[in-house]
Simulated scan of single mutants.
Amino acid sequence: MFDEKRATRRGLALGAAGLLALAGCGTGEAEAVDEVDATDAAGVESLKVEVVETYDHDAGSFTQGLQLAEHPTYGSVLYESAGLYGESDVRITDPGTGDVLATQDLPAEQFAEGLTLTDTDLWQITWQEHTAHRRDPVTLDIVESVSYEGEGWGICYDGAQLVMSDGSSTLTFRDPKTFAPTGTVDVTLDGEPVAQINELECVDGQVWANLWQTDQIVRIDPATGEVVAVVDAAGLLPEEDSAGADVLNGIAAAEEEGAFYLTGKHWPKLFLVRFTPA
């Protein structure tokens, strides 16, 4: 069963702030965002989504970050960061059932964004609170909280460094131990900047990223910032499941090579997918 406490907290959350944030990742006055067009971009793959399996997912989660990993008690799990003021938490879930196995709330004044696992730590970032929490991945307890400049949207770990987005077209690289910035790269498609970069997943030296307010996911070469593939995920959530759902957000590499878990904010479903030529 899904966490009943979450459902109760959702009803009691800070109404005004919650409604404001429902407009998107973290801003209530965001303008509509045009999808990127890879049609005439040389060397850019156009991909579509092939659904392999469909699972239940807690529709109470305003999904901001997602990562598959092994837990010493629960086995293969998804770590998930859920946002909104008064509702934010970090949780461990069963990918096959959607059950919430463990959870820790954030302070009501913090809006949780992306998360990622390093070799030893679980990092969770916040939207406008300039705070990153380094957590114990087993217990979810906060070990340390550090400050950073700018907004926090998505984050992933490539095995050597953290890669973080802030909603712009810039990715920031960070030290996985101290969270200190070590460099940046500007993301472009056919020479044009690609903004609204949100949830991230690092896989085999590449960065996969949700583009907020769109049904697109892009694959970025972090060495150059160039977008090398664009995934069209339109129609992934069936219309009969879309009542109350927000935008696509949440990408996690699956155990099988080339497969990914995808979900969205307040989505009642989690999908195991492959990306195939469009």
Score class of each variant (00 low, 15 high):
E29C: 03
Y74H: 15
S46A: 15
L237W: 03
P238D: 08
L200M: 05
A21T: 11
W153S: 10
V36A: 03
V44A: 11
G114I: 04
K48N: 11
P137C: 10
G26V: 06
A102R: 06
G28K: 04
H71S: 08
A112L: 07
A82V: 04
K5H: 09
T214W: 06
L115M: 05
V44K: 01
E35N: 09
E144H: 04
E257I: 01
A82L: 00
S88L: 05
H71G: 08
L237M: 08
T120M: 05
A13P: 01
R135F: 12
T126Y: 01
Y79V: 07
T263S: 13
G24P: 06
V100E: 07
T8L: 14
R135T: 06
A195T: 12
A59F: 03
T131Q: 09
Q110E: 14
S88K: 05
A16Q: 12
S168M: 04
T120N: 09
W267D: 08
G26K: 13
G191K: 00
Q128A: 14
E4P: 13
A195I: 09
H133L: 13
P72R: 06
T73K: 09
L22N: 15
C156Y: 04
I125E: 02
P238N: 08
L20H: 13
L237F: 04
D99L: 05
Q206E: 15
A42N: 07
L248F: 07
G83L: 07
I220D: 04
L19A: 12
T131L: 10
T184I: 12
G98Q: 05
K269Y: 01
V52P: 12
G167Y: 01
G225T: 03
Y74A: 09
P268S: 12
E45D: 12
V203N: 04
G65D: 02
K5W: 14
A229H: 12
A7W: 07
D99Y: 00
V247S: 11
H130S: 15
K5E: 15
